[in-house]
């Protein structure tokens, strides 16, 4: 139960958890400019070019489990933000702050990940770049 998902809240405009991030892609509609915070259990962590992918199971208040996928920039870009090849393992509890996909699906560009022990990776200003399929 402890491992269950919890919450999240989302970021509708105006909520306290909603923080505008740097959006330097003025023409893009790939992501919203507002952040969403989700808490869940890690399924997998892919440390790879062109972008790393973190899969997390998130249980909503209705008990439904939804898989979210968060992407980061390439390993050599996020290394200085604290991320490593073994930053996450399946079963880890993690809280993610991300810019959600504009199409409303459970995908997003990761700004910050907070591990169960409080370790923070990335930053709330860290959703830089669109995270597109750019090698």
């Amino acid at each position: 139960m402890r491992n269950r998902l919890v919450i999240v809240l989302t970021a509708a405009v105006g909520l306290l958890t909603s923080v505008p991030l740097i959006a330097h892609h003025t023409g893009t509609t790939l992501y919203t400019d507002k952040t969403v915070t989700v808490k869940g259990i890690v399924k997998s962590w892919l440390w790879s070019n062109p972008h790393c992918l973190l899969r997390v199971d998130v249980t909503g208040e209705d008990g439904q489990v939804v898989e979210w996928i968060a992407e980061t920039q390439a390993p050599n870009t996020i290394y200085l933000e604290g991320y490593r090849a073994k930053s996450f393992k399946a079963g880890d509890e993690v809280t993610l702050t991300l810019r959600q996909a504009a199409n409303g699906r459970p995908y997003g560009q990761l700004a910050q990940a907070v591990l169960a022990d409080g370790t923070k990776l990335g930053s709330l200003e860290g959703a830089r770049g669109r995270g597109a399929a750019a090698p």
Partner: peptide
């Protein structure tokens, strides 16, 4: 690696 990224993420995030 790019093909895998698009299969796992890029195509879905691009869709309507």
């Amino acid at each position: 690696e790019i093909e895998n990224y698009n299969r796992e993420y890029g195509n879905a995030v691009s869709g309507k």
